[in-house]
Write a protein that binds this DNA or RNA. Structure first.
Lengths: 202, 202
DNA sequence: GACTGTAGTAATCGACTGATAACATGTCAA
DNA sequence: TTGACATGTTATCAGTCGATTACTACAGTC
């Protein structure tokens, strides 16, 4: 009951601090987008000063790239777990792992934002490569093109529902309730529990 | 060969001007996002002054809502055409119409951006309602929940590929080429021809 | 052919934001 | 202990942007 509360200012190694800031950046970039997020937003979320965020990563752009890399690394790690785990069909296992990534606040939405930045001279190429690597991975573990396409499509639909904060309409709007039931016949409770809500600051 | 070039400044009714600015807004908002777009960007695209854009719509936020409404209206009009037209399976007809909307520059991406603004106090609710209305429409014309979900998922995947400017990688990156072939077995040429490119200003 | 309402612009401003510079503080080896 | 480097902050600035104000000019009407 003492020692590690918010008021305790502890010095971290730059590596630890970078990792912490990247997680904060995923949450904020996910909620507000690349342009809509200020470096000060992220600094507050990570409980450091704004100039320190800029200095650790060089620029807001570089920070976003670091957050994108982290999101993709976590995504591939989840896929690996899906491949390794047992029982069900592989599509179902991978789907479960993808939903489980909702534990990482803002991950799906940061990916979505990156995927909408195709025109950006720096972020665009990186985002395209990340997406192509996902395709490559799915094909590599044996997905036929049609299955890879179907898996990606379902993933993009989940991303959209998360980014829209649709979970807030579940139980209020019958159309949305029906949608959740149709989209997540077995995982609905999990998604509703893990999905970010509109009233969250990020 | 005379009279209607760019240098000819013609006076329009406010209704006509609004319609013109909304089309410009779809293109620019689609390419740069809500926050990333300035009212001056849209004003230049529509060849009017920046203050006039603000005055006609009240605020940038209201302008985005108008652009979102227009995108949804065009979407439902396309769906109506898909329902009415002949021959193929209804899913295929609707899909063709959705791809045909690529003629409206920025439409798919503006929708995608709106769908990522779920946390926005004003835009979020409108975007959720728009999405729910799409679901409602699909169900209303006879789509079973599973088919509606599949149709939406494929649409979100198309949106993602467009927003990523993936078409630029076709022919260069074999992974991307394969993806297009898998995702658009019959419509690939159309999509590649109509898809916006990275080098477009918007 | 002046009157009047609508279309449209130029000038400007306050708030915000990413980045830089200068400074402060903690930690660890010798 | 002390130096020296890495961690971290305060102060500040130059550029940008949405919005407001004040002004101009065109078109139809009586």
């Amino acid at each position: 009951m003492a020692g590690d509360d918010a008021s305790t200012k502890k010095r971290l190694s730059s590596e630890e601090r970078r990792a912490q800031i990247i997680l904060a950046a995923l949450a904020v970039f996910g909620a507000k987008g690349y342009v809509g997020t200020t470096t000060d937003d992220i600094a507050r979320a990570a409980e450091v000063s704004q100039p320190y965020v800029v200095r650790l990563f060089g620029s807001k752009e570089q920070l976003f790239l670091a957050a994108l890399d982290e999101a993709l690394a976590l995504l591939f790690a989840a896929f690996e777990r899906g491949v390794a785990s047992g029982d069900e069909a592989i599509e179902a296992r991978m789907g479960h792992e993808y939903i489980g990534l909702l534990h990482v606040r803002g991950l799906h939405q940061t990916l979505s934002h990156a995927f909408l930045l195709g025109s950006h001279p720096v972020i665009g190429p990186r985002a395209r490569d990340g997406f192509a690597r996902v395709w490559e991975y799915l094909r590599g573990i044996g997905f036929e093109p049609e299955h890879a396409q179907e898996f990606l499509a379902q993933g993009m639909l989940l991303n959209t529902m998360i980014g829209l904060r649709l979970a807030d309409g579940h139980g209020e709007d019958p159309r949305i309730t029906e949608m959740f039931t149709a989209c997540f016949p077995t995982e609905k409770a999990t998604v509703l529990q893990l999905a970010p809500r509109v009233d969250e600051p990020w």
